[in-house]
Design a protein around this nucleic acid. Structure first.
Lengths: 185, 185
DNA sequence: AAAAATATGTAGACCGATCTATTAAGGATG
DNA sequence: CATCCTTAATAGATCGGTCTACATATTTTT
């Protein structure tokens, strides 16, 4: 893959990512992806011969990886698990509010939309969540209830993000941040 | 409104509700609503002159009310808050699994899809969530942290539902049920 | 009580817009 | 030359929405 090809590919993934995060699978119309990335229609099918599902799948996977890396970064700069959880919630809250309540979880919307229809995409979403669970579990190593806690923390964060986005307020994130310490003992 | 009119109206709402829950706003195509409800196109715009948004709005509101009632019922037959939370999670897990991982939360998908685009629908979703928070808060009356806890519990349940639906497993719901007692003291 | 008038729904053809996907050809680059 | 990539026209399906004609109740009028 040449330089130019790689660049347009990335531009397409970026555009798709933004559109998906704001409104899910159906909001990421190929026309809009093309318009936002500046590339013509045919190029899309050159880079993603599998069509829209391949594009969305790659996009969700990439977004998942990015968030995962951010998670690791926050974890490394936190002294305790409670501090880490607090940093995550604050980070996600900033991101959400700064984007005008557009950028929540890049996986959730697609996951809920296609859970009943597209098996390949469902699997991608499942894998991304599993990778985040793994990252959390690693940070909880040593605790006897690490397996449960990792899932509970992820559920709490995802739920708070959903509520915050729906209410257009970071209040749910703040409330969760205030109470999550209880869970961690 | 005559009897027959009310019946088709309900059939349309039922069809919309099912489609929305399985795949959100865009999955509830008017053609499918028409096909599933057996009513012709014209009837839809007679009962919902506001078009799709009005139909979806009414559907989400109705679904929210139904879940709210189920919540009250479970609350009344539970001795403690912890027992109540457990019953809710088990009830939602049954519902989700029995439906072939189709019936999760009837609000979440729409909320995430249109949060950035449709103000009226966003408001409907926000109101439904607020009503559930109220119901939970009423059950927590007396506790000093009731306001926080209601939101935290709702976030936990919504997040667990999202993960369960994505993984096609009730494991996340079970894990949350196992740990939610810690939150409640 | 019969007939006329009005509301209440039903029915489906039709419209323009938009969607994903395909195609065939040409330009750039090694 | 050959491979990588771009370009744009186009196809065919589906989308939400509008329209007019028709049937069925419900009232009003006589």
């Amino acid at each position: 893959m040449g330089l130019k090809g790689a660049e347009t590919r990335v531009r397409m993934l970026d555009a798709t990512q933004t559109l998906i995060e704001a409104g899910g699978y159906h909001a990421a119309g190929l026309n809009q992806v093309i318009a936002a990335s500046g590339a013509p229609r045919g190029s899309l099918y050159f880079h993603f011969p599998g069509g829209k599902d391949q594009l969305v799948g790659a996009s969700v996977r990439r977004a998942g990886g990015m968030i995962g890396e951010a998670l690791e970064g926050l974890a490394d700069s936190s002294a305790s698990v409670a501090e880490f959880a607090d940093a995550v919630l604050r980070h996600l809250g900033d991101r959400l509010e700064e984007s005008g309540w557009r950028k929540g979880c890049p996986v959730a919307t697609v996951a809920l939309e296609i859970a009943a229809t597209s098996d390949p995409l469902q699997e991608v979403c499942s894998e991304v969540y599993a990778s985040w669970e793994d990252a959390l579990r690693a940070r909880l190593a040593g605790r006897p209830d690490a397996d449960d806690l990792a899932v509970v923390i992820l559920a709490l964060v995802e739920g708070a993000l959903l509520l915050a986005r729906t209410h257009r307020s970071r209040e749910p994130l703040d409330r969760v941040a205030r109470r999550i310490g209880v869970l961690l003992g």
